[in-house]
Computed example of a mutant assay.
Amino acid sequence: MNVKQITNLFSLMEFFVRAQRPLAVKDMVAEFGWPRSSVFNTVSTLVDLGYLYQPVARGGYYPTTKWMELARQLSEAQPLPESLHQLLEELASKTGETLFLAAPEGTSIVFLDVVESLADIRFIANIGQRLPIHVTAAGRAILSQYAPAERAATLRRIQYQPYERDDFMTPEAVEDNIQQGLSQGWFVNPGIYAPGVAGVAVAFPFQGQRYAIALGGPASRLEKNMASLGELLQTSVDQFLHDNES
């Protein structure tokens, strides 16, 4: 369930990112169709809290650097080391594809870090993005780290529905694929969730948490290289975990 006020706040901040300029109340009303009084109250509150200001009188509002300071402090407190982001960057450079770190959240996965491919045609991922845990390679890589009873309980809570393909419509079908992934060392998503998009992932148990490192890209580019990409991810992750256990 979304809290409307919070959703509206972040929609507004994303509008500032797209616009790259000060915005007047009328711009926000035109963009979202919100009541003018609601927009004015939101803007006034953000000004009072120090998050918006007017660079020029009557010239519109723009975010202050207070947002940057919050982001900096959160980044410094991030429990994941910078070396992990560097690993994603290295793998993105080697493969030419989008790399991401995923964590479980109920019956979904959430992207914690993303390094996007530079290719014109690429998998576009965003930090904070959520996808169903059972149909994604990253999700099944995470599920593979669960104890059997916990995994079975999670699979029973999923509301199964067909996506681009209907490969995983029962707990048994997902479990069979997880066992296959465990035997080969990596997990694949051959265009099951979204049309034309494929993925490869490996389990990444780190600092007592269950993560996955995965890459995504056009199925036409990945489908012939799934095994080699899986081996590369697994080798890189094994080396990273070894180096960080020393």
Results as ranks from 00 to 15, higher is better:
residue 9 L to G: 09
residue 138 A to G: 03
residue 216 G to A: 02
residue 57 A to Q: 10
residue 182 L to A: 06
residue 55 P to C: 10
residue 175 E to Q: 09
residue 172 E to L: 06
residue 147 A to Q: 14
residue 28 M to V: 15
residue 11 S to H: 12
residue 223 E to G: 04
residue 180 Q to L: 13
residue 25 V to R: 10
residue 105 E to M: 14
residue 194 A to V: 11
residue 61 Y to M: 07
residue 156 R to C: 05
residue 50 G to Y: 04
residue 230 G to W: 04
residue 161 Q to T: 11
residue 13 M to D: 05
residue 144 S to Q: 03
residue 231 E to L: 15
residue 197 V to K: 13
residue 173 A to G: 06
residue 57 A to H: 08
residue 109 I to A: 01
residue 29 V to M: 07
residue 172 E to H: 06
residue 30 A to P: 01
residue 28 M to H: 06
residue 165 R to Y: 12
residue 241 L to M: 03
residue 223 E to V: 10
residue 226 M to N: 04
residue 207 Q to D: 13
residue 17 V to P: 05
residue 174 V to K: 01
residue 107 T to S: 10
residue 112 L to M: 13
residue 135 V to Q: 01
residue 81 P to K: 07
residue 80 L to C: 07
residue 213 I to D: 04
residue 1 M to V: 13
residue 216 G to Q: 02
residue 164 E to N: 02
residue 27 D to W: 08
residue 240 F to G: 00
residue 243 D to Q: 14
residue 243 D to Y: 10
residue 207 Q to R: 15
residue 18 R to I: 08
residue 90 E to M: 09
residue 237 V to I: 07
residue 86 Q to G: 06
residue 156 R to P: 02
residue 245 E to D: 14
residue 4 K to P: 13
residue 71 A to W: 08
residue 16 F to M: 09
residue 189 N to D: 15
residue 37 S to T: 13
residue 126 N to M: 11
residue 180 Q to R: 14
residue 239 Q to D: 14
residue 199 G to Y: 00
residue 235 T to Q: 05
residue 81 P to Q: 06
residue 56 V to F: 12
residue 77 A to Y: 08
residue 104 P to F: 03
residue 115 V to N: 00
residue 69 E to F: 10
residue 228 S to T: 14
residue 143 L to M: 07
residue 230 G to F: 06
residue 93 S to L: 12
